[in-house]
Design a binder for these strands. Structure first.
Length: 342
DNA sequence: TCCCAGGCCTCGG
DNA sequence: CCGAGGCATGGG
């Protein structure tokens, strides 16, 4: 298993000077926790994840259940169901928690026959829930921040749920531009249900996200029938080409020398602007300083919390970001909860 | 009908 | 470099 990490550096963004301190992150996207034997226990037919502290399964469930139209997993009866592709093999899992802290991974249908496969599955979940991050410094910062204090207390134990698949993160960021979320989920579902692989279990269908090459080869006219605009069709196809060619990859982004450079790499693809780039860096690359300033959800959350009439301007949001330091992405994620959970 | 939606691109200064 | 305007499309 490879271990990746961003490199540190200084980046200049507008008038802001941000000091990068990424190397202090304990584990990253493809890194195992320091001691896997302490992070989960393998019981053969199931695996029990043992998070580090500051984890509350139910808070994460609230985020996962935010939309009825989400097609990449299913939340029902306080359990999460998801189809994974591990080493080319389909693995259907059920996630539950007996005590709101530990997570049980149950393998539905075929139990992976090797411990290696079960370890990779556990690691996927570990990464998906960002269990390698020590949230204590964030909570310490948030406790004295008027904007974050109440929501971080209310949703204590919420993790920044990731989108581990780069292509999925990019597609979602393009599809979600300038349309309401209900519609965006519908668009994504149409794409996934046409181009993706699925597996039926117990009367429900579970989907893998489509391969970029299939979307790269799709005619625009056909994508248009999903009610995507002409522009978005072009953007999706272009992005799909770059991901399938390898021009855009997790590795390339991780090898960027700064967040700024990673942002520029993403923005080099037509249709990916500052919002999409930061969204992808936040959800897929887990860049702590990623900050989607243009995000209307973020703006509305701040507006609500401050009880203002008008949405804050991007400039005001950027100023807020200053005091979030290297926790901008986490602050954003928690602020979003204002919209889902009231 | 009108405004809004988890923006991006182009183009004129 | 920046700001305004156009783009497209469904939801409420």
């Amino acid at each position: 298993l490879k271990s990746h990490r961003f490199l540190g550096g200084i980046i200049i963004k507008g008038k802001d000077v941000i000091t990068k301190t990424m190397s202090d992150r304990k584990y990253s996207l493809a890194g195992l926790p320091p001691d896997a034997s302490e992070a989960w226990r393998d019981y053969g037919d199931r695996v029990v994840i043992i998070p580090s502290e500051d984890f509350c399964f139910n808070e994460n469930l609230k985020y996962l259940a935010r939309s009825e139209n989400e097609c990449m997993y299913r939340v029902a009866d306080n359990k999460v169901y998801k189809l994974l592709l591990i080493e080319g093999q389909e693995v259907l899992i059920e996630l539950s928690s007996p005590d709101d802290f530990h997570m049980n991974i149950r393998f539905l249908e075929d139990v992976p026959c090797t411990k290696y496969m079960r370890d990779l599955t556990a690691k996927y979940i570990w990464d998906w829930f960002d269990l390698g991050t020590d949230l204590r410094p964030f909570y310490k910062m948030a406790a004295s921040d008027p904007l974050l204090k109440s929501i971080t207390e209310k949703h204590h134990g919420l993790r920044l749920i990731g989108v581990p698949n780069l292509f999925e993160a990019i597609v979602w960021s393009i599809v979600g531009q300038q349309v309401n979320l209900t519609f965006a989920y519908r668009l994504k579902r149409r794409i996934v249900e046409h181009f993706g692989r699925s597996h039926k279990w117990n009367g429900e269908q579970y989907w893998l996200f489509p391969n970029p090459c299939d979307i790269a080869a799709a005619p625009i006219a056909f994508l248009r029938t999903f009610q995507l605009t002409q522009r978005k069709c072009e953007y999706l196809i272009e992005a799909a080409k770059r991901v399938s060619e390898g021009t855009l990859s997790i590795k390339a982004l991780q090898q960027s020398r700064s967040v700024r450079e990673a942002e520029q790499l993403l923005c080099a693809t037509r249709g990916i602007g500052p919002w999409s780039a930061n969204y992808v860096l936040m959800r897929c690359l887990r860049e702590p300083e990623a900050f989607p300033v243009e995000d209307v959800g973020l703006q509305n959350a701040v507006k609500t919390l401050l009880g203002q009439e008008k949405k804050p301007t991007p400039k005001e949001i950027r100023e807020l970001g200053q005091r979030f330091g290297k926790w901008k992405s986490y602050a954003t994620f928690y602020l979003w909860m204002v919209l889902y959970a009231g």
